[in-house]
Design a protein around this nucleic acid. Structure first.
Lengths: 340, 340
DNA sequence: CACTACTTGAGGTACGTACCTCATAGCAAG
DNA sequence: CTTGCTATGAGGTACGTACCTCAAGTAGTG
């Protein structure tokens, strides 16, 4: 039915041992012979039975997810998906581990990355803020044979590293488009709330958002970003202040992944006309808010896909395979209460 | 690391042969012994290595997709995904076949289903209009050991059959919500264009759409559905007529999966104020229309997911496993040009 | 020509499971 | 006691690949 290594050997006129040497890049085969085998591979359109290969190899891929420690519900969601995938992919010889790390300390992160054992860890999905230290650490990991990908955040920082996550500029633009269309030509200001504008992801979402709103919705004025620094009290204070200073707030865009705290503050404030509220990521809290009509829409990424895609990309890197980037593109989803 | 059958045998104090008999439901094992083995399975939390099992069994799952013949681009998209999956899942011993069938002839469909060979076909994903004949045919297939699922259309027709596809009522409701929110309180009529209102799917989308628009957007009046019967000339005629008869058309909702023909007609018509246009499914044509601002949004389902989900559900049925229905829920996606 | 290095083949074991055959032990009915 | 049946074990082969060892061949070097 499907060509096996045995068929290959027969077709190429060599032994199984030589086929094995060629397939697994082992040394000691004449160039001439390599080509004969490769030709047979073409001719029979041989594709290695990965399933059998993994069985034989008895190899476990061990991948590490390095996540920020300070997360809230989005992070919890992510970890739940990782645990899920850990079970689901055990049959495919994949083992997942999670490490949470204080993201404020680049040195500590770099140290953690540096101390990973290449004999134990095959690859790391890294979701921490970019910094020169971390970038160096990634380079050193590559040298030691541990594959890395940038996970959710950190797109494009270094072109050589793969990225699994959404295009944050597009996500911001999507939010901007919906803000404009939902705002019904109402004139007013739009509040933008971020955890910190230090991170590239926040900046990109903001850029995408601004680009659309400024270009197509002149009735809306996007205010400077408020930065919560993840501090609930500060969040409360700066949002309250903004509503006092701007009586004409027509929209609120919460661009951070953890929307719960700012959302609680915003929805608790008394107001005459409810602004359009757009937030990111699906969590128990945001989902309930959407169902209760407290927010207008959610821009999300499927956490299950994120995790599975990270696995596939890491495994492909370990196997030295190329992967169709297109297939691993994470969709920017729009959630209304009708399609939750 | 992970328990194997050998560990099971050891723990249960029986031989590998007996473990095998219990695991595969072979006869000739005392009830007492069966329980001992089952207990060991629990204790070691043994899970059969499916990969190895399939290797050993040398079994190929052969699944058939029975699709309507009269499709356009959405169908082509679907077939492309099936071909893709056929390659991708070859390693997992899954073989896919496609059969296109004139969906207007229930007897012919029932005959085709009846003539399937249980020795060759393990399961069928059926995407054809519901009819008593087809329902009977499915029952007979079940008796002959061929698993079936309703694919994309036909949800709920029979409760016993699995369904892979989106909730069409929710999809219609999503379209309704966006129509209402995008229409900016403009008053006017909304044109609804379907291929046929005979199919349950169309009815459900329409119901969902109406429910939302009627409840929340009194400014909009949803007109009776136009039925194109898949005939381009008729489509042109009835849409033109509608625009002549209703000067106040504020929105157009194309609820059929194949949107190209009606969309071409609508976008070709000269009009003063462009209505809000909402269509279903992502195809080269609809995607281009979205990019060109000719339509406002697309409500889609990921065809790749549809196909893969169908596979997983069918395989689970063949293996006699239960599957997490939640995991196989197909998302209703909203596409704007920003998140294409 | 002898020595070395490289190339190839032959054959084995293993991974975890399925499936088969044969032997044997236990037990009950006749 | 024989017959027959059930329950179980022991052991083998197979799936497709990985990885290992050993032998033997070829070619090139000095």
């Amino acid at each position: 039915m499907r060509a096996t290594t045995k068929d290959l050997a027969l077709a190429a006129g060599v032994s199984l041992a030589t086929v094995d040497r060629v397939l697994n890049g082992r040394p000691g085969v004449k160039q001439d012979t390599v080509e004969r085998v490769n030709h047979a591979i073409q001719k029979l359109s041989f594709r290695r039975n990965i399933v059998a290969a993994n069985l034989a190899r008895g190899k476990f891929y061990t991948f590490l997810f390095m996540l920020p420690k300070s997360g809230d519900q989005f992070l919890a969601e992510l970890i739940a998906r990782i645990d899920e995938a850990n079970l689901a992919f055990a049959a495919e010889m994949i083992r997942l581990e999670v490490m949470e790390i204080p993201e404020s300390d680049p040195h500590r992160i770099a140290n953690m990355l540096g101390s990973l054992d290449p004999n134990r860890i095959d690859g790391v999905a890294i979701m921490v803020p970019e910094s020169p230290q971390v970038r160096d650490a990634k380079t050193r990991l590559a040298e030691r044979g541990i594959k890395t990908i940038n996970f959710i955040s950190g797109q494009d920082t270094d072109a050589q590293a793969a990225f699994v996550g959404t295009d944050n500029r597009a996500a911001g633009a999507t939010a901007g488009r919906l803000m404009g269309r939902f705002a019904q030509q109402r004139a007013g200001s739009v509040l933008v709330i971020a955890e910190s504008m230090q991170s590239r992801d926040s900046v990109e979402r903001r850029l995408g958002f601004d680009a659309v709103v400024n270009a197509d919705y002149p009735n809306l004025t996007v205010l400077p970003s408020l930065e919560s620094y993840g501090d609930p009290e500060r969040t409360e204070r700066i949002i309250r202040n903004s509503f006092v200073n701007h009586q004409d707030i027509a929209g609120v865009y919460i661009l951070s992944s953890e929307a719960r705290v700012p959302l609680e503050v915003v929805t608790r404030l008394p107001m005459q006309t409810k602004p359009i509220i757009i937030a990111h990521e699906r969590t128990p809290f945001t989902e309930a808010a959407l169902r209760a009509d407290k927010i207008d829409t959610l821009i999300t990424q499927d956490t299950g896909h994120l995790v599975r895609s990270a696995l596939r990309v890491l495994r492909a890197k370990v196997d030295g395979r190329e992967i169709l980037a297109s297939q691993e593109k994470i969709r920017i989803e729009i959630l209304l209460k009708e399609n939750i």
